[in-house]
Write a protein that binds this DNA or RNA. Sequence first.
DNA 1: AAACATGTTCCAATAAATGGAATAGTGTTT
DNA 2: AAACACTATTCCATTTATTGGAACATGTTT
Lengths: 266, 266
Amino acid sequence: MEPVTDETAQPATDTGTFGKVLAVLDLVLSADTPLRFKDVLQLAGQPRGTLHRQLTHLVSEGLLVVGADGSYTPGLRLLRLAHRSWSQNSFRTVAAPHLLRLHAATGETVHLGVLSGSDIVYVDKVEGQQTVRMGSQVGKTSPVYCTGIGKAAIALLPEAELERLLSTIRFVRHTPATLADAAALRAEIATVRQSGIAFDREEHEEGIRCVAAPIRAGGKEPVAAISVTGPAYRISVDQLDRWSEVVSGCAADIARDWRLCLGPGR
Amino acid sequence: MEPVTDETAQPATDTGTFGKVLAVLDLVLSADTPLRFKDVLQLAGQPRGTLHRQLTHLVSEGLLVVGADGSYTPGLRLLRLAHRSWSQNSFRTVAAPHLLRLHAATGETVHLGVLSGSDIVYVDKVEGQQTVRMGSQVGKTSPVYCTGIGKAAIALLPEAELERLLSTIRFVRHTPATLADAAALRAEIATVRQSGIAFDREEHEEGIRCVAAPIRAGGKEPVAAISVTGPAYRISVDQLDRWSEVVSGCAADIARDWRLCLGPGR
DNA sequence: AAACATGTTCCAATAAATGGAATAGTGTTT
DNA sequence: AAACACTATTCCATTTATTGGAACATGTTT
């Protein structure tokens, strides 16, 4: 007989001492200003001795660096780890050529995003030649409810999972067009499921529009989507409509290649 | 009284159980093919029970994902962590505009690299418009002895540290031009120190040349360098020479801004 | 120089990791 | 289809690292 555990108690997953140290790392990285020991102490709610050792370990592993003023900043180890994580990601590898094609077809910025928890993580990006800022977005997370990729991706989820996710979202109004609550998002998702296309009509950032399409990857493995994004002054709403075919076609191509990659038997 | 500890015993740093789990993560990420449990078991040299729990922790923390076939692949958590690490890196932030300028001046790929242990980690990159492959290189590591950035960076080290680093290098011949041993590298470093410029004359990859300059950041904090890289068919050795002024000028600019960033009092 | 804030070290109590072995699960061969 | 080999997972007494309160440094302000 199943012990009736609380379904929402996901953070209760015990990852031992490792998880605790990782939480400290997360905390330091999340801060938007370098923290000193006392700051971390306050935020972490951990005894001095314990925290001190944890930070020491993080530093000697190269995940954090402690500056001359005692402030903790991210170390290079993370970049190294992430590079391998990124370059080996087979889903990204499969999608990459298609992203390039989509970029060539539209001339605008193309994103590949994957659902992780309640957020979208940008896994890859192809940018226009004017903006020469490297992999800036890769690894960045955005909320699902106000991005094209987000809405496209969660439209793939089975009803139960979608509802569970909806209940965890804290809706923040970023622009006048931002969807305000779960009901609005639920309605939008219904449309996305029908049309196979999601839009972002300046819902996340004023002056930014995008078209997105879910990637039906068969197995539930990666819940993902792609998008074409551009400035509102250049991209009309009509233009988005005209691109929707290309975008969903591209998403279909990625899905096809991905299934091939998993092996023909599966 | 200083306890006479073995200077070379760096890996002996005890990072407790955290370090052990991290080592497992490193191992899985380093493999060039997805590993299953038995593979990791073999490589990690750790008892079954222990390893199993470690992998379980890594998975529930999202650092690894276990596929349907039981193979372990990198999770998205790493990307998220690394993004914050990268976007907040103040040294990179300071350097970025200068990298863009250098790219504009030369039209070729520009790199920013930082010394980490015995390797160079690429921290940022500005690429030519033709190659639209996103942040591919960021986080990648290269050996110091066969890259312009590597040679430029270690030229900044004090003699003792340089020698210590030299002794750890395993020289692998990548091309006919690769420096073959510590003596050759030592000689080259002497030149770099005098001229303030390092070259890579197809020493790492055939058909690839580069000019690099060390960033004299004052405090020993980041041992770093920048470079301009291009294909040999387009970039003559003379061209590299002609760029050396611009490159070292750019490195000086970054160093200046970095010192300003640390605060005028320091 | 005293009071204070911050960072580091110490060590008995405690909780977690360890690792050998038994068990369960998977797919392959006869 | 049964036996087999291989792999993954669970179990639990032992060992070890973590815990956390408090004492000790260190540097800064009043």
